[in-house]
Protein backbone atom coordinates (compact mmCIF):
# COMPACT_ATOMS: atom_id res chain seq x y z
CA UNK A 1 0.00 0.00 0.00
CA UNK A 2 1.41 3.39 -0.96
CA UNK A 3 1.64 6.32 1.44
CA UNK A 4 -1.25 8.19 -0.16
CA UNK A 5 -3.71 5.32 0.21
CA UNK A 6 -2.56 4.68 3.80
CA UNK A 7 -3.05 8.36 4.74
CA UNK A 8 -6.47 8.44 3.10
CA UNK A 9 -7.47 5.25 4.94
CA UNK A 10 -6.30 6.56 8.32
CA UNK A 11 -8.09 9.90 7.86
CA UNK A 12 -11.28 8.13 6.78
CA UNK A 13 -11.16 5.95 9.90
CA UNK A 14 -10.44 9.00 12.07
CA UNK A 15 -13.58 10.69 10.73
CA UNK A 16 -15.69 7.59 11.22
CA UNK A 17 -14.79 7.57 14.95
CA UNK A 18 -17.19 10.52 15.32
CA UNK A 19 -20.07 8.13 14.76
CA UNK A 20 -19.27 6.65 18.18
CA UNK A 21 -18.70 10.00 19.83
CA UNK A 22 -16.81 13.27 19.49
CA UNK A 23 -13.10 12.68 20.21
CA UNK A 24 -9.62 14.22 19.72
CA UNK A 25 -8.71 11.92 16.80
CA UNK A 26 -11.74 13.11 14.87
CA UNK A 27 -10.98 16.73 15.68
CA UNK A 28 -7.36 16.35 14.60
CA UNK A 29 -8.49 15.00 11.22
CA UNK A 30 -11.09 17.76 10.90
CA UNK A 31 -8.61 20.53 11.68
CA UNK A 32 -6.05 19.05 9.31
CA UNK A 33 -8.71 19.07 6.60
CA UNK A 34 -9.51 22.74 7.19
CA UNK A 35 -5.80 23.59 7.14
CA UNK A 36 -5.09 21.65 3.95
CA UNK A 37 -8.09 23.03 2.16
CA UNK A 38 -7.08 26.59 3.07
CA UNK A 39 -3.53 25.96 1.86
CA UNK A 40 -4.84 24.39 -1.35
CA UNK A 41 -7.02 27.42 -2.05
CA UNK A 42 -4.18 29.85 -1.43
CA UNK A 43 -2.13 27.93 -4.02
CA UNK A 44 -4.99 27.70 -6.50
CA UNK A 45 -5.88 31.37 -6.23
CA UNK A 46 -2.25 32.33 -6.77
CA UNK A 47 -1.91 30.00 -9.77
CA UNK A 48 -5.22 30.97 -11.42
CA UNK A 49 -5.64 34.64 -10.57
CA UNK A 50 -2.55 36.36 -9.14
CA UNK A 51 0.05 34.77 -11.45
CA UNK A 52 -1.81 35.15 -14.77
CA UNK A 53 -3.03 38.68 -14.05
CA UNK A 54 -0.18 40.31 -12.15
CA UNK A 55 2.89 38.47 -13.41
CA UNK A 56 1.83 37.62 -16.95
CA UNK A 57 -0.82 40.11 -18.13
CA UNK A 58 0.41 43.23 -16.38
CA UNK A 59 4.14 42.80 -15.88
CA UNK A 60 5.06 40.69 -18.92
CA UNK A 61 2.53 41.71 -21.55
CA UNK A 62 2.00 45.24 -20.29
CA UNK A 63 -1.81 45.13 -20.26
CA UNK A 64 -2.00 48.06 -17.90
CA UNK A 65 -5.80 48.25 -18.08
CA UNK A 66 -5.82 45.26 -15.75
CA UNK A 67 -4.35 47.46 -13.01
CA UNK A 68 -7.78 49.04 -12.63
CA UNK A 69 -9.37 45.67 -11.90
CA UNK A 70 -6.54 44.83 -9.55
CA UNK A 71 -7.02 48.14 -7.76
CA UNK A 72 -10.73 47.46 -7.28
CA UNK A 73 -9.79 44.11 -5.76
CA UNK A 74 -7.26 45.65 -3.38
CA UNK A 75 -9.74 48.32 -2.29
CA UNK A 76 -11.98 45.54 -0.93
CA UNK A 77 -9.50 45.25 1.92
CA UNK A 78 -10.07 48.88 2.90
CA UNK A 79 -12.87 47.73 5.18
CA UNK A 80 -10.27 46.54 7.67
CA UNK A 81 -9.04 50.13 8.09
CA UNK A 82 -11.86 52.01 9.85
CA UNK A 83 -10.83 55.44 8.52
CA UNK A 84 -11.20 54.41 4.86
CA UNK A 85 -13.61 51.49 5.20
CA UNK A 86 -16.20 53.34 3.07
CA UNK A 87 -13.93 52.84 0.05
CA UNK A 88 -14.68 49.12 0.08
CA UNK A 89 -18.27 49.87 -0.86
CA UNK A 90 -17.27 50.76 -4.43
CA UNK A 91 -15.97 47.35 -5.50
CA UNK A 92 -18.80 45.78 -3.48
CA UNK A 93 -21.33 47.84 -5.45
CA UNK A 94 -19.63 46.76 -8.64
CA UNK A 95 -19.97 43.09 -7.64
CA UNK A 96 -23.60 43.49 -6.55
CA UNK A 97 -24.39 45.33 -9.77
CA UNK A 98 -22.73 42.64 -11.85
CA UNK A 99 -24.61 39.91 -9.96
CA UNK A 100 -28.01 41.56 -10.38
CA UNK A 101 -27.29 42.40 -14.02
CA UNK A 102 -26.19 38.87 -14.82
CA UNK A 103 -29.34 37.39 -13.32
CA UNK A 104 -31.60 39.81 -15.18
CA UNK A 105 -29.77 39.36 -18.47
CA UNK A 106 -29.35 35.59 -18.55
CA UNK A 107 -31.60 33.88 -16.05
CA UNK A 108 -34.94 35.16 -17.36
CA UNK A 109 -34.81 33.16 -20.57
CA UNK A 110 -34.55 29.71 -18.95
CA UNK A 111 -37.55 30.76 -16.85
CA UNK A 112 -39.52 31.59 -20.00
CA UNK A 113 -38.59 28.11 -21.23
CA UNK A 114 -40.17 26.71 -18.06
CA UNK A 115 -43.35 28.71 -18.72
CA UNK A 116 -43.71 27.64 -22.34
CA UNK A 117 -42.77 24.10 -21.31
CA UNK A 118 -45.89 24.13 -19.11
CA UNK A 119 -48.21 24.65 -22.10
CA UNK A 120 -48.98 20.95 -22.13
CA UNK A 121 -51.15 19.27 -24.70
CA UNK A 122 -53.27 16.87 -22.70
CA UNK A 123 -52.70 13.49 -24.27
CA UNK A 124 -52.28 11.30 -21.22
CA UNK A 125 -53.21 11.18 -17.54
CA UNK A 126 -49.59 12.01 -16.73
CA UNK A 127 -49.68 15.27 -18.65
CA UNK A 128 -52.98 16.33 -17.04
CA UNK A 129 -51.67 15.45 -13.58
CA UNK A 130 -48.38 17.26 -14.17
CA UNK A 131 -50.21 20.38 -15.31
CA UNK A 132 -52.57 20.37 -12.31
CA UNK A 133 -49.58 19.99 -9.97
CA UNK A 134 -47.70 22.90 -11.62
CA UNK A 135 -50.67 25.24 -11.43
CA UNK A 136 -51.72 24.38 -7.89
CA UNK A 137 -48.16 24.63 -6.52
CA UNK A 138 -48.01 28.08 -8.12
CA UNK A 139 -51.29 29.10 -6.44
CA UNK A 140 -49.87 28.03 -3.06
CA UNK A 141 -47.31 30.83 -3.39
CA UNK A 142 -49.84 33.62 -4.07
CA UNK A 143 -49.44 35.96 -1.12
CA UNK A 144 -51.71 38.86 -2.04
CA UNK A 145 -54.82 36.83 -2.87
CA UNK A 146 -56.88 36.05 0.22
CA UNK A 147 -57.27 32.42 1.25
CA UNK A 148 -60.83 33.16 2.39
CA UNK A 149 -61.93 32.42 -1.17
CA UNK A 150 -62.80 28.69 -1.12
CA UNK A 151 -61.63 28.05 -4.68
CA UNK A 152 -58.22 29.63 -4.02
CA UNK A 153 -57.80 27.92 -0.67
CA UNK A 154 -58.68 24.46 -1.97
CA UNK A 155 -56.32 24.76 -4.94
CA UNK A 156 -53.62 26.11 -2.61
CA UNK A 157 -54.14 23.26 -0.15
CA UNK A 158 -53.79 20.76 -2.98
CA UNK A 159 -50.70 22.71 -4.05
CA UNK A 160 -49.27 22.31 -0.56
CA UNK A 161 -49.65 18.54 -0.78
CA UNK A 162 -48.01 18.53 -4.19
CA UNK A 163 -45.06 20.42 -2.72
CA UNK A 164 -44.86 18.03 0.24
CA UNK A 165 -44.79 15.03 -2.10
CA UNK A 166 -42.04 16.73 -4.14
CA UNK A 167 -40.10 17.40 -0.93
CA UNK A 168 -40.48 13.75 0.04
CA UNK A 169 -39.01 12.77 -3.31
CA UNK A 170 -36.18 15.25 -2.81
CA UNK A 171 -35.55 13.86 0.67
CA UNK A 172 -35.34 10.31 -0.65
CA UNK A 173 -33.02 11.34 -3.46
CA UNK A 174 -30.71 13.19 -1.07
CA UNK A 175 -30.56 10.24 1.32
CA UNK A 176 -29.69 7.92 -1.59
CA UNK A 177 -27.04 10.37 -2.76
CA UNK A 178 -25.43 10.29 0.70
CA UNK A 179 -25.43 6.49 0.52
CA UNK A 180 -23.63 6.58 -2.80
CA UNK A 181 -20.99 8.81 -1.23
CA UNK A 182 -20.62 6.37 1.66
CA UNK A 183 -20.45 3.50 -0.79
CA UNK A 184 -17.56 5.21 -2.54
CA UNK A 185 -15.69 5.38 0.76
CA UNK A 186 -16.53 1.81 1.82
CA UNK A 187 -15.46 0.57 -1.59
CA UNK A 188 -12.16 2.39 -1.19
CA UNK A 189 -11.60 0.82 2.25
CA UNK A 190 -12.55 -2.70 1.18
CA UNK A 191 -11.02 -2.72 -2.31
CA UNK A 192 -7.99 -0.43 -2.24
CA UNK A 193 -6.99 -0.74 1.42
CA UNK A 194 -8.04 -4.17 2.64
CA UNK A 195 -8.14 -5.68 -0.87
CA UNK A 196 -11.09 -7.93 -0.03
CA UNK A 197 -13.41 -6.66 -2.77
CA UNK A 198 -12.87 -6.52 -6.51
Amino acid sequence: MDGGTLTAALVTLALWTYLYKDNPIFRLAEHLFVAFSTAWWVGELYRNYVKPVVLEDILQQGRWGMVLALLLGVILYARFVPAISWLARYPMSWMLGYGAGYVLAFQVKPLVGQITGSFLKFGSINSVLLWICIVSALVYFFFTISRENVAVSSVATFGKWVILVALGAAFGNTVLFRYTLLMGRVEFMLRDVLKVAQ
Binding site: I115, T116, S118, F119, K121, V135, L138, F142, T144
Partner: peptide, 20 residues
Amino acid sequence: QDWARIGVFALIIVGTILAQ
Protein backbone atom coordinates in the same frame (compact mmCIF):
# COMPACT_ATOMS: atom_id res chain seq x y z
CA GLN B 1 -43.27 39.43 -7.40
CA ASP B 2 -46.70 38.13 -6.52
CA TRP B 3 -48.25 40.01 -9.39
CA ALA B 4 -45.60 38.62 -11.69
CA ARG B 5 -46.47 35.14 -10.40
CA ILE B 6 -50.16 35.75 -11.09
CA GLY B 7 -49.14 36.90 -14.59
CA VAL B 8 -47.19 33.67 -15.13
CA PHE B 9 -50.22 31.73 -13.89
CA ALA B 10 -52.42 33.50 -16.44
CA LEU B 11 -49.88 32.83 -19.22
CA ILE B 12 -49.83 29.11 -18.37
CA ILE B 13 -53.63 28.92 -18.41
CA VAL B 14 -53.91 30.71 -21.78
CA GLY B 15 -50.98 28.82 -23.27
CA THR B 16 -52.41 25.47 -22.22
CA ILE B 17 -55.85 26.28 -23.64
CA LEU B 18 -54.19 27.27 -26.94
CA ALA B 19 -52.18 24.04 -26.91
CA GLN B 20 -55.43 22.05 -26.90
